[in-house]
Design a protein around this nucleic acid. Structure first.
Lengths: 136, 136
DNA sequence: TATAAAACCTCTAGTGACTAGAGGTTCAAG
DNA sequence: CTTGAACCTCTAGTCACTAGAGGTTTTATA
């Protein structure tokens, strides 16, 4: 089984070194073995876990959600249902965010278009954004 | 012109009271007048600005970006071309954000649907998340 | 007009998810 | 054996708030 220094692990996973140490500190990564001189030594279990965490983070899961998913990994019993629930809830959040941003993009597009017609002095960007939030 | 206490302003804008004070502290809101007894008194200028800020925040702009947009407003009469450029850049940012979120949603959808066919006991959700990040 | 309760004030500290820097130690190549 | 890269711990900073303590002002009612 391969053994990695923190720098090697960082390179493989594209995760910064302080972030790896931070994950260990908050029990997202299992505590690493140490060398004679007290430097961290990782194995493939750490590598797999870190890939999992970074993938989840890239998908926008919070570390708390990731902690739940990790827990579900280790106790397989009812894991799929709950994991499905977490992922589905997150998906709904993302879809909602997309809808909101599309509304804004439409607004901005209108503004930019109107401004490019040679009437930039009438730019309405702030007026458009002045009204209260549409959603919620 | 109407005058509001911080509590009234909070209610109208659905913005929490400490957040309003925070915005004043970091110069996102103009400093409020004070009553005899040192309590903040707001007017419609503050109301308008706060609505603007909350709208932008709801749409994912950072406070720094909002600061720029505010600056853009006061500048636009004097530098319409520059203002247009800034507005357009913001539009591009938003479009890019939408693209990223759509990629993310597609992947989440895949994750969620891997076990939606009534066979959740075979759910691959946790395995799917083990592979390294797809994008970047 | 007195009082009580609601609303306000400032200040400090905490959140999540890192990131940066100081100052010191260990490892590996030549 | 030396030197420089990589590592160590610890503290503090980032963003955008949020919570709580402890005290003051405003306002509604008796």
């Amino acid at each position: 089984m391969a053994i990695y220094s923190i720098g090697q692990l960082a390179k493989i996973t594209s995760c910064k070194i302080p972030t790896i140490r931070y994950y260990e500190e908050i029990d997202i990564l299992p505590v690493a073995e140490r060398s004679e001189g007290n430097q961290r030594r990782y194995n493939d279990v750490h590598l797999q876990r870190l890939n999992f965490v970074r993938h989840c983070r890239a998908l926008g899961f919070s570390l708390e959600e990731i902690r739940q998913l990790i827990h579900l990994q280790t106790c397989q019993q009812h894991a799929p249902y709950e994991a499905h629930e977490i992922a589905n809830k997150h998906l709904q959040d993302v879809l909602q965010k997309i809808t909101q941003l599309q509304l804004l993009a439409a607004e901005l597009l209108e503004v930019v278009h109107c401004c490019s017609e040679g009437e930039r002095h009438k730019c309405q960007i702030l007026n458009v954004l002045n009204k209260p939030c549409a959603n919620k």
